[in-house]
Each structure stands twice: as structure tokens, then as C-alpha cells.
Amino acid sequence: MTHAFVALLPVFIVIVLGAVLRRTNLMGEAHWAGVDHVCYFVLFPAIIFKEIAAADFSQIPVWQMAASMVLALMTMFALLLLLRVPLSNMLGINGAQFSSLFQGATRWHTFIAFAIVPLFFGDDALALAAVSAATMTPLLNVVCVIVLSLYANNGGERPSAGKLALVVLRNPFFFSSMGGVLFQLSGLTLPTIGIQVLDMIGRGALGLALLTVGAGLHFGEAAAAKTTVALATALKLLLMPVLMVLALKLFGVSGTPAAVAMLCSAVPTGSGAYVLARQMGGDAPLVANILTFQVICAAVTIPLVLTFLV
């Protein structure tokens, strides 16, 4: 566990640096929003497209890996929805707060995962992280929108098929990963200059993204974390990796592909959960509390998971 913690320490140091920079007001709110926007819509999509388009997947069990991730997520979805009423009664939460618990227990922070994967498994493993993004991002977006529509803001309006399709298609991780898949299927080879350009675009993404993670943390609120925040943290950082490992074993996935998929399941919830909650009547402050507490706890739980489950 010590080796894993030391290996991942730079990730959490950069996150803390982002938090310090935010609180010193060296960069204003608008600047942080701009950096996050560029990472989300330009830098990370460039990484995802390049890693999928240029990777050699001939020796990688892509379909088994994808099926494992879908099964693990669907299992968590089912558990939360089946236990919604008793959990809500036990925690004393309403529909909007349940939707935040749901997002906190299921979504994953792509920025953190993509920063950890090359540190622990090498740069070549980023292609496997891109497979994870291509698999989990569309499914999570669709299901979380449905859950928010059903339970947040007193149920609200149920999403149409067109609205769900638009949510998925507007996600930059989806169209960059699908673009990479289509390029792979075309049989073309990504030109060297194209790889160099995409590398240059994406090279600064990991550091910048981690800084924005730190800048978005709310430590004062996390210190007063309630039972709902603690439960979302336990489900996401501990139970989700266990479900992923069981699914990977079921589909016979092992080695680095299994380790990367498991790691992607073990990172904190995504910051997109806050935006979605704010847009669809969920409890956005609760999502912010969950994300902050999970990032703090992940400094211990991720090395723990890497030590005992990989």
C-alpha cells in the first residue's frame, strides 16, 4: 500500500495545489471556469481520440472489458434503485437528495483516472482508460438523466428518447471516443504529425485538470459531512471497485486491462454530476460535498484498492 500511495502522491499534491491557488484568489472564478471548460471540451477529448485511434487493441479483450464495466454499473444501479425507499427513509432524504446520492455512488472522475493510470501502469495504459470512457460515459449520462428526471424536483418531466440522445451526443468524451472507434474500424493509420499535434494538445490536460479538481473542492462543507455523504463515499470508493473486480473475473478479464477498469471504478464521482444536478433540480450542494469528501478519502482508498484488488 505504501508503494501505491507514494506513486499516486503527485496526483493529490497537484489537487491540493489547485485548492490553494483557488483560495489565494491568484486566479478568479471566471479563469477557473475557463480552464475547466477547455479541459473538458478540448484537451481531454484530444487524449481520448488519440489513445483509441492510435492504439493496438489486437491483444486487448475490449468487449469483455466493456461488458464487465457495464455489468458492474448496472449492479450498482439496481442496488440503489431497489433500496431507494428504505435508504431514503433511513437517511431522511428527499428525491433530489437521493439523485445526488445516486450520482455520487456511480459516476467517475475522468480527470483523476486519466492522471493516475499513466503514473501506475505506464502511458500505454491510457488507451485502456479511453476504452473505459467510451463504455461508461454514455451509460452513466443516460441513467443519471433518467434518475434525476424521475426523482429530483418532485419527479419533473420524464426525458424523451430524443433528449437522452442529445445528452449523450453533446458529451465531448462520447463523440471523441466514438470518433476514435470509427477511425480504428476504418483501418487507417493516424499520421505521425496527427499524433504529435494531439499529444501537444493533450499534454497539459492532466495537470490542468487536477488543478481544477482542487479548485472546485469545498473543504468547509466536507468537514461537516453527513451520513448521506459518507454512504455515497463508501459505495463509490469501496463497493464499486469490488463489484468491478467480480464482473471482470466473471468475463475472464485479467492483467493490466482488469487493473485499469478497476481503477476507473475506484476514483471519486465526476464533477459533471454537480452541473447535472444544478440543471435538473437535484441537490447540487450535496453533490459538491460528496465530491470533496470522496477526493479526500481517495488518497487512502485508491492505494488500498490497488494493493488488495489488483
Rank of each mutant, 00 (worst) to 15 (best):
C144R: 00
W108D: 13
T75H: 05
L139A: 08
V42F: 15
W63F: 13
A205N: 01
L198Y: 00
I302L: 10
M262T: 15
Q97Y: 09
A7V: 14
I13N: 02
N94F: 09
L291W: 03
L119G: 04
G252S: 05
L190K: 00
V16W: 09
G194H: 02
H3M: 15
L243S: 06
N94P: 08
N89F: 15
A30Q: 14
Q294N: 12
R23V: 06
F102V: 00
F183D: 05
R203Q: 15
D283W: 06
D123H: 12
A19T: 15
A54D: 07
G122R: 05
I195A: 10
L276C: 01
V275D: 04
L26M: 14
V300E: 11
E157K: 13
F183T: 01
A7D: 14
L169R: 14
G155K: 10
Q196T: 12
V42S: 06
P285A: 12
T227P: 13
K226P: 12
L21Y: 11
Q97V: 04
F114V: 05
N141R: 00
L126G: 05
S186W: 07
L198V: 02
V242N: 11
L182D: 14
F102W: 07
V267P: 01
K50Q: 06
L81Q: 00
C39E: 04
V229N: 12
T292N: 05
A67L: 09
G34S: 09
I146R: 06
L248G: 03
L150E: 15
L206M: 15
A55L: 02
S88R: 13
G156C: 01
M244N: 11
R203F: 06
G214S: 07
A66L: 03
L17F: 15
L43V: 01
I52P: 00
A165T: 08
M280V: 11
A105D: 07
L139W: 06
L304V: 10
T135Q: 03
V11S: 10
V6C: 12
E51P: 06
A53K: 00
V267A: 07
D124Y: 05
L235G: 05
F293W: 04
I193M: 10
S265I: 00
